[in-house]
Amino acid sequence: MTDFILETRQLVKKFGRGTRAQIAVNQVSLHVETGKVYGLLGPNGAGKSTTLKMVTGMLHPTAGEILFDGHPWERNDLYRIGSLVEQAPLYPNLTARENLKVRTILWGLPEERIDTVLEMVGLSNTGKKRAGRFSMGMKQRLGIALALLADPQLLILDEPTNGLDPIGIEELRGLIRSFPTMGITVLLSSHILGEVQQTADIVGIIVGGKLAYEDELHAGQDLEALFMDVCRKGSPDEIR
């Protein structure tokens, strides 16, 4: 039996009321396998970020169910779910260590975690350099370090390579691939197909708010051709 760290069952999110209500996520059922990197794909506005915001507690689902580690999602699970959704919440006038220390104090976490996560993301030697002077790649890695402070089982990243140069993308790719070896499952949303091709074990494709495809990503598979085919057909019934 496959072990899923995260499942969504017929998840729905509507914005507005009555006849003017817009359905952003329409009965999406994801299956994120423990110890894997799951790549969530879709055109702009397809519902990827809205889905992740429901899983991370930023939005309340209109209908459906979220299961974490086999039980119905509850707010306490957020201590075991690390996330970087939208821009990293950094204090630009503080160093990497100081940014992390603020979070350990707020969350009541042991200060020893700071050294651990700085090493995990490759920022141990930033010294007194303030976060506002970091490169975009360093800021993203510091944002991931913040998400890792509570030692989560699941890490959720929404478009983590946005704004990065090729070197930053390559460094982040290697970091993401390393997480399952540390016991951390990754749910990654991206519109960069080449990065998902090199990073993910499983892909899900959302089109028009619906999950139109979900399966393992096989070696040599043409993800771009698959993505375009799924987006053209649109309906899960037509894909399967």
Score class of each variant (00 low, 15 high):
residue 117 V to K: 08
residue 164 L to Y: 07
residue 93 N to V: 14
residue 86 E to D: 13
residue 161 T to A: 07
residue 150 A to M: 11
residue 108 G to V: 00
residue 124 S to G: 09
residue 109 L to G: 05
residue 131 A to H: 06
residue 105 I to H: 10
residue 165 D to I: 03
residue 93 N to W: 14
residue 163 G to I: 09
residue 109 L to W: 13
residue 84 L to S: 06
residue 110 P to R: 09
residue 162 N to W: 12
residue 95 T to G: 00
residue 164 L to D: 06
residue 76 N to F: 09
residue 156 I to N: 14
residue 133 R to N: 15
residue 80 R to S: 12
residue 82 G to M: 05
residue 99 N to L: 03
residue 166 P to K: 08
residue 135 S to W: 11
residue 138 M to A: 10
residue 124 S to Q: 14
residue 99 N to I: 04
residue 81 I to M: 13
residue 75 R to E: 15
residue 173 R to S: 06
residue 123 L to N: 07
residue 133 R to D: 11
residue 75 R to L: 14
residue 76 N to E: 15
residue 131 A to R: 04
residue 146 L to T: 13
residue 107 W to S: 13
residue 98 E to D: 12
residue 107 W to Q: 15
residue 73 W to N: 07
residue 147 A to N: 08
residue 95 T to R: 02
residue 119 E to A: 07
residue 82 G to Y: 01
residue 80 R to Y: 13
residue 157 L to M: 11
residue 161 T to N: 05
residue 125 N to H: 15
residue 116 T to K: 13
residue 139 K to T: 02
residue 110 P to V: 02
residue 169 I to F: 07
residue 128 K to G: 03
residue 107 W to D: 12
residue 153 Q to V: 01
residue 91 Y to D: 06
residue 150 A to E: 05
residue 112 E to D: 12
residue 95 T to I: 08
residue 108 G to W: 10
residue 151 D to W: 00
residue 122 G to A: 06
residue 91 Y to F: 14
residue 149 L to T: 02
residue 151 D to R: 14
residue 142 L to Y: 04
